[in-house]
């Protein structure tokens, strides 16, 4: 399109992008393929990775209810986190969208600031808060109630995940809320729609892109999380990534650990594909209604 033919050649462009491609090929693509290959080998006591090709690792995972239970827990935690961040995050995004000036700057600053603090530290803060000597337990004690076990439970993982990923839900929703023309909301009110009706039939559909972007992000980040579940859940309530870590680092069973990693990737991708399919179906339906209308 441009006349800069001599400068904008594909050789120059290729040279610019080549270093990145090399690094990615050498330290991302090949290692991942290597993981896939390892997962298709048997485990050997002596050398770690045996020299026999097998699908045994996958069969082992899919046959054992314990491992399937871990997979289901991982999915369950991701779903709970996604739903809770949505329920907490949407109203917060609305509050942020409604404020202006300095207040808004501060609110956004404090929403993002925790993201800069290491996840290890944030999780450890919850360990202190939820521990048997922690302030929450003390509160139960003062009220004369039996203190429930909170730390090293699935609840603790859910809590920590919501804490870590809330901002990832709020930001895209805030973005799409700001793209909604205020006049549309006023028009709905003018036509006699109540607050709830306006929200459900106007605001929510219009911000659906932001909601689904946030949901996809939170879901896949939660499913592949390692730090928060391993600090707040511990070995009693393992998730997929902990399982893979233990197999590779503690048990030294690289083939099985690799297989678990591959299963995690495939399952999250499948769930996201299903989710995308559901969204597309929905969109198709709404368009249909509009045209028939």
């Amino acid at each position: 399109m441009l006349v800069y033919k001599r400068t904008y050649t594909w050789t120059t462009g290729g040279l610019l992008v080549l270093p990145a491609i090399l690094v990615f090929t050498l330290f991302f693509v090949i290692p991942l393929l290597h993981v896939l290959l390892t997962s298709l080998h048997n485990y050997s006591q002596t050398s770690g990775v045996g020299d026999r090709w097998t699908t045994q690792n996958y069969a082992k995972f899919l046959r054992d209810p314990y491992y399937l239970g871990v997979l289901w827990r991982t999915i369950r935690i991701s779903l709970v986190t996604t739903v809770v961040t949505l329920i907490l995050g949407y109203p917060l995004a609305m509050v942020l969208a409604a404020t202006k000036g300095r207040t808004r700057s501060w609110l956004i600053l404090f929403l993002l600031a925790p993201l800069l603090v290491s996840m290890v530290i944030r999780a450890y803060g919850w360990v202190i808060l939820l521990g048997t000597q922690g302030p929450v337990a003390n509160l139960f004690h003062v009220l004369g109630l039996r203190t429930p076990t909170m730390l090293y439970t699935e609840f603790a993982i859910d809590l920590g995940m919501v804490h870590v990923f809330l901002a990832y839900m709020v930001l895209p929703i805030l973005g799409s809320l700001e793209n909604v023309d205020a006049a549309i909301v006023r028009a709905a009110a003018n036509l006699g729609a109540g607050k709830w009706y306006t929200f459900r039939r106007v605001l929510l559909p219009l911000t659906l892109p932001g909601v689904s972007a946030g949901a996809v992000m939170v879901f896949s980040l939660t499913a592949s999380s390692f730090v928060t579940p391993s600090i707040l859940g511990g070995p009693r309530v393992p998730v997929m990534s902990e399982l893979a870590y233990d197999q590779v680092v503690s048990v030294m069973n690289w083939p099985y650990g690799s297989a678990i990693g591959c299963i995690l990737i495939v399952v999250t991708m499948l769930l996201l594909l299903i989710y995308a399919g559901v969204l597309r179906g929905r969109r198709g339906r709404t368009e249909g209604t509009v045209t028939s209308w």
Partner: peptide, 17 residues
């Protein structure tokens, strides 16, 4: 694509590689 690959898997991959 690194956004879609769990860090644990990347860790395992780099360890082996």
């Amino acid at each position: 694509s690194p956004l879609l690959i769990p860090s644990v898997v990347l860790g395992i991959a780099l360890l082996q590689w």
